[in-house]
Amino acid sequence: GPIILDTYRVIADFEKTSKHEINLHTGDFVEIVEKNENGWWFCQCESKRGWVPASYLEPLDGPEEAEEPEPDYEGEMHVTTQAYEAEQEDEISLEVGQTVEVIHKLLDGWWVVRKGEQTGHYPSMFLQKSDKKN
């Protein structure tokens, strides 16, 4: 049968920063072709196709709780593969090679991690699962 793609609504303007991305305008509708765990989704909007940040989209048919995993408060050990400096209040700054606990794998690619008593969002593409036990 035909492939039915999920439709999402754009919630904020997005300006592309590389050639495989597309611009988004608030209120546009896009169809999602692929959802990458790192938070970049491949979508089509009219005749354009390209990657866009998932956090700029909301599902057309109600909340997407079903596809978003529940938080895991015990945490899953990961190691940072790249440093990142927080740019927004709810983010966490970490150096490369630090061990953290991932407590919520959000679909937008900004996972909630815990490091000691600090908690904040961190780019999932800078995290690698670790074999170390808690």
């Binding site: 904020a12 920063t17 590389s18 495989h20 790192n38 491949f42 909340p63 937008d108 593409m125």
Partner: peptide
Amino acid sequence: SIKNPPQNPPPRPPPEMRRKPA
């Protein structure tokens, strides 16, 4: 065809523009 996704973290909208938690 689908190219590889960008290698930089996806940007986030400013807090006031974000989706409300479900």
